[in-house]
Structures are given as structure tokens and as C-alpha cells.
């Protein structure tokens, strides 16, 4: 008979405590890593075609940020219920594991997207200041497409093909419907506001575009994550 993480046994309580500690450390490391990486990426974008002149400290920051993201991701993976250790596989239900994997994938994607936001912002501001080179345009367009793409990808197919068999489950269908039902009007409102801002303050609208896109895609993703969390209770 499979055991589950909400059953009241000493072993499971100890396991949950360990997961809790790992999760706090993971959040801290992921947060710091995302900030460092985002800030460093912004500096690199600002450098444009003068990448060779970027100081060693920036490259060090990028490396540190990457290491922190990898460490944080690993800890987050280990701390989430249903992670891949033998013990946890035995303790978790297969389908719960898949649900949690999907939510975890989405949250990690969100953190990555938030890390990209400063780079997108930086590229937009350089274009606006008319000091741009071609790489700034590439960066702005790429990131503007990549951020929503990443999150929508996670929302629609979080975790890859291994999850396909559970997508037809009606609970997940209802989660998706609710998430998109909240996300669509939010996107319409935010983009309408951006449009009107663009009519009166075009510069502000350009600067606000990456943030607006981030809001549009994070709202449905967080809604899904919240519904998933609520279903645990």
C-alpha cells in the first residue's frame, strides 16, 4: 500500500521538515541567482558589440548567477514532494508526482523569466535612448518573445511528454480553463492600458512593454499554481 506525504508518521514528518529546509534554501539561492544573472545579462546587453570590453567582474557575476540557479534548481527539485529519490518515489503517488512536477516546472520557468526581465528592460531603454546597436534589437525582440513563450510553454506542456497521459484528466482541464479564463481578460486589460499609454507617452510604453508582457503571462501561470496548491488541502 503506498504511503503519502500527508500521513502522520515520524518518518514522513522528518522528510517534510527536510523538504521544508531545502525549499527555503532553494528559494533564496534561486532568487539571488536570478537577480545576479539578470543584472549581469543587462550589463552584457548594454555592452552591445563591445562585449570584449565587459569587465571580468561581470563575467564572474554571470558565472556565479548560473551556479546559483543550478544549485537552487537542484535543491528545489529535491525539496518538492515527489522528487526523484528512491525514497520519495516510494512515498509519493505517481499522479501526485506528475501534478507537482508540472507546478514545479512552471515556477522554475517563472523565475527564469523574471531573471530575463532586466535584460529586456535594459535593451528597451538603450533603444529608446538611441544608443542601440543591432544586438540590442535582437535582445529586445528575442526576450519579448522568449518570456511569454517560456511561460505559455510551461502552462500548456509543463514537464514534457512524460506528463501527456494526465492532461486529459478533468481536474487539470478545469485548472487550465480557470487559468486561461483569468489570464485572457488580464492580458486584454494590460495590453489596452499599454496601448493608451503609448498614445500619450510612447517612451513610457516602450519601457513598460516587458513588464506588461510578464504580467500577461505570469497571471495565468500563478493562477494554475494556486489552484494546484489549493487542491492539496
Amino acid at each position: 500500500m503506498p504511503l503519502f506525504i500527508n500521513e502522520d508518521t515520524d518518518a514522513l514528518i522528518r522528510l517534510e521538515q527536510q523538504r521544508g529546509r531545502n525549499a527555503h534554501v532553494a528559494r533564496l539561492i534561486l532568487g539571488v541567482g536570478a537577480v545576479v544573472l539578470g543584472a549581469s545579462a543587462a550589463r552584457v546587453c548594454g555592452g552591445g558589440d563591445k562585449v570584449a570590453t565587459i569587465p571580468l567582474t561581470v563575467w564572474t557575476m554571470i558565472a556565479a548567477g548560473l551556479v546559483m540557479l543550478v544549485m537552487g534548481g537542484w535543491l528545489a527539485w529535491r525539496s518538492w514532494p515527489g522528487s526523484s529519490s528512491t525514497l520519495l518515489l516510494r512515498l509519493s503517488g505517481e499522479r501526485d508526482k506528475v501534478h507537482n512536477k508540472q507546478a514545479r516546472y512552471m515556477l522554475i520557468t517563472l523565475i527564469a523569466a523574471i531573471g530575463m526581465l532586466p535584460a529586456a528592460f535594459q535593451a528597451s531603454s538603450i533603444i529608446l535612448a538611441r544608443h542601440s546597436v543591432w544586438s540590442d534589437w535582437v535582445m529586445a525582440i528575442l526576450l519579448s518573445a522568449l518570456i511569454p513563450g517560456l511561460i505559455l510553454g510551461a502552462l500548456l506542456n509543463g514537464g514534457g511528454t512524460k506528463l501527456d497521459y494526465i492532461y486529459d484528466e478533468e481536474l487539470i482541464q478545469s485548472f487550465r480553463a480557470r487559468a486561461l479564463g483569468v489570464g485572457y481578460p488580464t492580458a486584454m486589460l494590460v495590453l489596452a492600458a499599454l496601448f493608451w499609454l503609448g498614445l500619450f507617452r510612447p517612451n513610457w510604453a516602450v519601457l513598460a512593454a516587458p513588464s506588461a508582457l510578464l504580467i500577461c503571462v505570469t497571471v495565468p501561470a500563478w493562477t494554475f499554481a494556486w489552484l494546484n496548491l489549493r487542491s492539496e488541502r
Binding site: 503519502f4 503517488g93 499522479r95 501526485d96 506528475v98 501534478h99 494526465i166 484528466e169 478533468e170 481536474l171 478545469s174 494546484n228 489549493r230 487542491s231 492539496e232 488541502r233
Partner: peptide
């Protein structure tokens, strides 16, 4: 189905 589905049906959430 998943345990979450049973849980949410039981609690009249879903």
C-alpha cells in the same frame, strides 16, 4: 485519476 481529483471532489471543491 489523481489523488488530488478525489480530494477535491470529496471536499466539494471540484
Amino acid at each position: 485519476v489523481s489523488r488530488k481529483t478525489v480530494n477535491t471532489v470529496e471536499n466539494s471543491v471540484f
